[in-house]
């Protein structure tokens, strides 16, 4: 079977294939010619500043919006020709879970089960299972408009998972939740990600770092980074920073001594106070330079107050890549 000239086998290796996807709102380009593949299984994090095009991308993937140009293929289905089949494969939780306010939670989930063609006998047990997984047992017979934001988000998650879809698309699933709820929802997503393909967008970079197997950073509608978290850090330049605090007055002397260590690319004065100096040593390469640095400090008898290595966080990389947005 051929699909747009490509063998079916090749396409099947990818769960989702995005090709030259573009979307305009009037004269504004929200998503600008992006292409990438998503493999079966795992959690893909979509990062980007506000207005970067994350939600627009998700809305096109879930067939809510039509692309201005380009194509999305989910399994063997094309978004332009088989939107209903694609919708059947995807469970979607839009940002802030806009549920029907007047409906009871149970009635709402029953409605979703009915729309998703789940037989009546199986629907009840599925709703019961989801109520347990998402922790909504105690609100099943309350109207949606009386629920807290956290519970609405959980009901939204149950909605998305109703048909046990192969792909789960979650737009900022933890926004507005308290820290305990964030941890709970994150655990649920991690569990699902072991079996299903999960695509989630988030502003919380630590969340993406902790939850996602792969991260795609979007800025102004274009992909600016794509890869596993560690891979992204490597792509972004120098690998880590070493913080050193010393009781010593001569920065030039220290800089001269420490910049001679192989692997240290820069020694910067981060701050000084009452005879103490905070230094940032930018380091690159696989070699651990800490023993050499410690040896120099020891030989010079510089009183050492602090000495630790900081791996470059995703936040630094995110800021660098989306600077000027």
């Amino acid at each position: 079977m051929l699909l747009d000239g490509q063998p079916y086998r090749e396409i099947q290796a990818h769960m989702i294939r995005i090709e030259n996807l573009t979307r305009y709102y009037g004269g504004t380009c929200a998503v600008n010619d992006i292409s990438f593949d998503i493999k079966r299984g795992g959690i893909l994090g979509l990062l980007g500043p506000n207005g970067a095009g994350k939600t627009t991308f998700m809305r096109m993937l879930t067939c809510y919006l039509r692309p201005s140009s380009g194509n999305i293929t989910v399994k063997e289905y094309n978004i332009h020709e088989h939107p209903l089949q694609i919708k059947g494969l995807i469970g979607y939780l839009p940002e802030s879970a806009p549920l029907y306010p007047d409906m009871l939670v149970y009635d709402y989930l029953k409605f979703v089960a009915d729309v998703r063609n789940i037989e009546k006998a199986r629907a009840d047990s599925r709703i019961k299972d989801l109520a347990g997984i998402c922790g909504i047992n105690e609100v099943m017979h309350r109207p949606v408009n009386e629920l807290s934001k956290g519970y609405k988000q959980r009901v939204g998650l149950a909605h998305a998972m109703m048909s046990d879809p192969e792909i789960l698309v979650l737009d900022e699933p933890t926004s507005g939740l308290d820290p305990n709820q964030i941890v709970e929802i994150r655990d649920i997503i991690r569990k699902i990600g072991k079996e299903k393909t999960v695509i989630l967008s988030t502003h919380i970079l630590s969340e993406a770092e902790a939850t996602c197997d792969r991260i795609v950073i979007i800025n102004r509608g274009k992909i600016v980074a794509d890869g596993a978290t560690d891979e992204l850090k490597r792509q972004a330049g120098s690998d880590y920073i070493i913080h050193v605090s010393l009781v010593h007055g001569n920065f030039d002397e220290i800089r001269q001594a420490l910049s001679g260590v192989p692997g240290v690319s820069d020694v910067a004065l981060a701050g000084s106070d009452d005879g103490t100096m905070d230094l940032h040593l930018a380091c690159s390469g696989q070699r651990d330079v800490r023993p050499d640095i410690y040896e120099i400090i020891k030989n010079n008898n510089w009183p050492l107050l602090e000495f630790y290595r900081e791996t470059r966080t995703l936040e630094t990389i995110f800021r660098e890549l989306t600077r000027g947005n």
């Binding site: 809510y64 209903l84 979607y92 839009p94 806009p98 549920l99 306010p101 998703r116």
Partner: peptide
């Protein structure tokens, strides 16, 4: 207004 249309249209309905 409430955004529920997005939920409705992303379910397998035309």
């Amino acid at each position: 207004n409430t955004g529920s249309y997005e939920l409705m249209l992303t379910m397998p309905v035309s």
